[in-house]
């Protein structure tokens, strides 16, 4: 592990990658779709289901259209990074492993106060919940730590341990930065030193304007409904592929549509066209998709299906 304090945002990410790689996690890449949080990556949502062991870590760009502040707020953005770790079954020393990751990014426990404060996690859109904590470092929430109990309406057996770091906030704290846009993105002594703002200020402005005022709500609504319909259509296909004769349940393509529907909902929400009562209905529709995907995933090999399931009767 590199010594001393990290000097840039990317060094913190690299140190986390190195650390979790050294602890045996597969270092995955971000999922190539718009998601609201790292949990939506199929490496978490789907892989937390079923019985097969799993250990993965990755950065996930996350979009929350309603949080856009045109790049002006010191720590609120419509696009930010989460670092996500998912290990199934949760190892008995997960807290220690987690603390090791904080040490790896330069948090010295002799000077800081780390606390595990009750925070139960729930995702109504994913039909998921778990128990755990928000982790405080000197009163600042730096991570979510969750033992998944249920995902997509399925009890988790075994239980996955999930760690989510809000990277910008954590990095700002470690680097002592007050405004996210002032944070060094690469090494401050690099020939072309870039700050976070050099990379993202303009996009924050552009997306804030589009999210809040310009996105075509009629289109978004159509996209939402199209994604919803396509997700259902994919899952309605028979398991056996007529072309190859193989059993191919198309969970991931269907789940992509679920992710899309969720993001379109978030955009509609940011445009302020969803009323309080409608909100619940939309969330319920996305949850229904997530649940169907979860049902389908446990019918696949990655989801622990062994071929002897009652479905063989089909």
């Amino acid at each position: 592990m590199s010594d001393g304090k990290p000097r840039s945002f990317q060094e913190i990410i690299l140190r986390l990658q190195t650390y979790w790689a050294s602890k045996g996690c597969a270092i995955l890449q971000p999922y190539d779709m718009e998601v609201g949080a790292g949990t939506f990556h199929p490496a978490t949502t789907l892989r937390s289901l079923g019985t097969r062991p799993w250990a993965a870590a990755y950065v996930q760009p996350s979009r929350r259209p309603t949080d856009g502040r045109y790049g002006e707020n010191p720590n609120r953005m419509q696009h930010y990074y989460q670092y996500q770790v998912l290990i199934k079954p949760s190892p008995p020393d997960l807290q220690e492993l987690y603390l090791g990751s904080l040490a790896a990014i330069g948090i010295d426990f002799d000077y800081h106060d780390i606390r595990f404060v009750e925070d139960d996690w729930e995702s109504p859109t994913l039909g998921a919940w778990g128990l755990g904590w928000e982790v405080w470092c000197d009163g600042m929430e730096v991570s979510q730590f969750t033992y998944f109990q249920q995902v997509g309406g399925h009890d988790c057996h075994p239980v996955s341990g999930e760690l989510t770091y809000g990277l910008e906030r954590l990095a700002m704290y470690v680097l002592g930065i007050d405004h996210v846009m002032d944070m060094p993105f690469n090494d401050p002594d690099a020939p072309i030193a870039l700050k976070y703002g050099d990379v993202f200020r303009q996009t924050e402005e552009e997306y804030s304007r589009w999210n809040f005022d310009v996105a075509d709500t009629d289109k978004l609504l159509q996209f939402f409904e199209a994604a919803e319909a396509e997700c259902a259509r994919i899952l309605d296909q028979p398991a056996e592929d007529p072309r190859s004769g193989k059993r191919i349940v198309m969970v991931h393509p269907a789940y992509d549509q679920c992710i899309k529907a969720s993001h379109f909902f978030n955009l509609l929400d940011a445009r302020g066209v969803i009323s309080v009562t409608e909100r619940q209905a939309y969330i319920g529709r996305v949850r229904a998709l997530a649940k169907r995907c979860a049902d389908a995933f446990v019918e696949t090999k990655a989801g622990g299906w062994t071929g002897n399931a009652p479905e063989a009767a089909n």
Binding site: N75, Y111, H112, I114, G139, M140, Y173
Partner: peptide, 24 residues
């Protein structure tokens, strides 16, 4: 604020961090 430990700098870092969060 009530910290869960003694530190080498008598809580200075902890207090600074907490103050920062409070300001936000």
């Amino acid at each position: 604020t009530v910290a869960n430990r003694e530190t080498a700098d008598n809580g200075e870092t902890i207090l600074k961090g907490n103050g920062k969060v409070l300001s936000a």
